[in-house]
Structure formats: structure tokens, C-alpha cells
């Protein structure tokens, strides 16, 4: 690659283990275009859930009442997964925010019979709610389990409905919903930029999760824009970058940066239980 622009453009495929065989949309469709993506620095993420609530607030996600949590029908477009390592006193909790990966090669898109989910030319995995008929095939296909089905019509007791964001549809029963990268914000910025007759500025678009994240662990960016700070960050931190479940070959639009643990022994037996002394 001659320019860093091209490098940045193909990074998504470079980090994919199957990058050689599966072209990214950047390569096949729009080499010069936008590919929205996110860099998630796991070393910054504290698991504080700020992004989760920000997303709930921005996207009119139904209230996850206790019964829904118990039935495992709670909807959180972004969720903080917590994984344990080791045992007391050397137990470690690892957090990872998991949201729709906006895969360049998305398993959900091919299986939808009605094109309710498709890939647009900005690298977004779009869900068209009104088109969705609720076969839930996409949710099965998604290895990240980030697609959520509406078993009910959501309800907000008066006057709670006042807080609903008019830019986002309230999803009815029977359809799948998921993270949209706050497409309403992207659209708004695009319209504004168009009205003002200019290009979108780097960093002008911010989804709710990245905006609220206190530690700036989530950084939204155009992966094809070599000027954007996150793209440069991902470049600089190439040694730490990986994508989730690489072996599925989904070419995710979200690049994770590995958690740094100075005490981690990365050998085979690093996770063997350590002698306790309590």
C-alpha cells in the first residue's frame, strides 16, 4: 500500500484472519467512501455502564423490567459482558462492550428474506424496522448475539413517553432491533453538512455510547478516514488490535484493542488456579 489512506481503508480486512479471501466492502464497493466503525480500547473500558444507559436513552429502547431480565428478553443494544478469570484471590473480571459489529461480511444480511437488514454504502449494517417480518433468522446467524427481538409492544407509562427521541422509531412487537451506530445522528450531521455545503468533519458524528463514555474507551470513526484520530490510534496500536470472533470471517467494523495486563502470563498455564493464602 502506498498511502496511509489505503492502509487505513483496508485495515478491517487486515485484522481479519480471513482477510485474504473475504473482501471488505471497502475493497469491493466504495474504496473512497465512508466506513463507519468504532475503536474500543478495552484497556480504557471500566465496565461502568454509562454507554448502556446512553444507548437506552437515545434509541427509545424499551424498559427492561425485571420480568424481562428474568426471561432473558431484556434489550440492550450495547451490553458490557463480564468474564471471569482465575479464582479468589487472583480472580480477575474482564469487561468488554459488545454491540452490533456492523460487519463488512455480515451473516445476518444474507439470511433475511426481505432485505430488512442490509449493508449500506457507508459500512453500516442497517435494519429497516418496517420491512422486518420477524423471522429472527438474522438473530440466529449473528455470532455476537446483538440482535434483539421485540416480544411485546414497548410501553412507557405517561408521562414517560415525553422522553422518547422523535428521531428514532419506536419499534413495535414482532421485529428485530439492534444497534444502528445512532444512524439518526449520522443522518443529522450529513444533512447539516449538506445544507452548509461542506464535508462531514472528522469526529463530528458521535453515537450516544461513545459520547458518554467517561474514559473514552469507545471512539467512533470513519475507518476509511486516515486523518481521524481513532484510525490513527488503531494504526499505532496495531499490536493490540483484534476483532471479535475473527474466525467467523465477518470483517467487523469494530476494532477492539486488547486489554493490557502487566501481570498476565500469556503462556498456556497462565490461567491455572493460583495458590490461595487467605
Amino acid at each position: 500500500m502506498s498511502s496511509s489512506a489505503n492502509e487505513a481503508a483496508s485495515r478491517a480486512s487486515a485484522v481479519s484472519s480471513m482477510g485474504q479471501t473475504i473482501p471488505t466492502d471497502a475493497e469491493v464497493g466504495h474504496p473512497e467512501g465512508v466506513r463507519w466503525g468504532m475503536v474500543v480500547d478495552l484497556d480504557r473500558c471500566t465496565g461502568c455502564q454509562a454507554c448502556v444507559v446512553a444507548c437506552q436513552a437515545e434509541n427509545n429502547i424499551a424498559l427492561n423490567e425485571e420480568q424481562r431480565v428474568l426471561e432473558r428478553r431484556a434489550k440492550t443494544w450495547i451490553r458490557i459482558e463480564r468474564y471471569w478469570e482465575g479464582e479468589f484471590p487472583n480472580a480477575k473480571a474482564r469487561f468488554i462492550p459488545v454491540l452490533c459489529q456492523h460487519c463488512g461480511n455480515a451473516p445476518c444480511e444474507t439470511v433475511c428474506p426481505v432485505w430488512a437488514t442490509y449493508h449500506n454504502n457507508e459500512g453500516l449494517n442497517v435494519q429497516v424496522y418496517n420491512r422486518c417480518i420477524g423471522t429472527r433468522f438474522c438473530a440466529n446467524g449473528c455470532p455476537y448475539s446483538v440482535r434483539y427481538f421485540n416480544f411485546w409492544n414497548p410501553e412507557w407509562p405517561e408521562p414517560m413517553n415525553n422522553q422518547l427521541n422523535p428521531d428514532v422509531t419506536v419499534r413495535t412487537k414482532g421485529i428485530i432491533e439492534k444497534c444502528t451506530f445512532c444512524i439518526q445522528r449520522i443522518n443529522r450531521v450529513q444533512v447539516t453538512a449538506k445544507t452548509e455545503g461542506r464535508e462531514i468533519r472528522s469526529g463530528e458524528v458521535q453515537p450516544a455510547c461513545a459520547q458518554s463514555c467517561p474514559t473514552s474507551a469507545l471512539v467512533f470513526c470513519d475507518l476509511n478516514d486516515p486523518e481521524s484520530a481513532p484510525a490513527q490510534l488503531a494504526e499505532a496500536e496495531a499490536g493490540r488490535s483484534y476483532t471479535l470472533l475473527e474466525h467467523f470471517g465477518t470483517d467487523p467494523g469494530i476494532i477492539y484493542l486488547k486489554k493490557v495486563d502487566p501481570h498476565a502470563e500469556l503462556e498456556e498455564d497462565s490461567h491455572a488456579p493460583v495458590e490461595t493464602h487467605a
Binding site: Y118, N120, V126, R131, V168, T169, I183, N187
Partner: peptide, 8 residues
Amino acid sequence: LDCATCHK
């Protein structure tokens, strides 16, 4: 003609 242009 992108769906996301009009559909939210």
C-alpha cells in the same frame, strides 16, 4: 436510494 436515507 439507501433505505437508511429515509427509514429510521
